[in-house]
């Protein structure tokens, strides 16, 4: 359900009475409606679903959650040899 893909707003403009944006998805650029993200600025990332931007992606939150696990990964590696995924996969 609800496929929504992250992309970067490269241009904001008005079309058909709506606030629209060009969104860059690693090189492919498509149009999306920005009416529901009134504060979004060019350069920010959003999630687009069915041609509508749903949110302004929070870079800080993304970084935090990744860093937490990266640090934990380092701790685990120091504590114990990483067991292979397959060892405890259902057999």
């Amino acid at each position: 359900m609800c496929l929504a893909i992250p992309g970067r707003v490269v241009k904001i403009f008005s079309e058909g009475g709506l606030r629209m944006g060009h969104i860059d998805y690693s090189g492919t650029i498509s149009k999306a409606c920005l009416e529901y993200v009134p504060d979004i600025r060019e350069g920010q990332y959003t999630l687009v679903h069915a041609g509508f931007a749903l949110t302004i992606l929070d870079e800080e939150e993304a970084r935090k959650s990744l860093e937490t696990w990266e640090e934990m990964g380092e701790v685990i590696q120091m504590d114990e040899p990483q067991d292979s995924l397959r060892d405890s996969a259902r057999s």
């Binding site: 496929l3 893909i5 992309g7 860059d24 998805y25 690693s26 090189g27 492919t28 687009v48």
Partner: peptide, 13 residues
């Protein structure tokens, strides 16, 4: 997969 092709694939599912 080229990055822009992948982007287009992701958008359209």
């Amino acid at each position: 997969v080229k990055p822009d092709v992948r982007g287009a694939c992701e958008i359209l599912g």
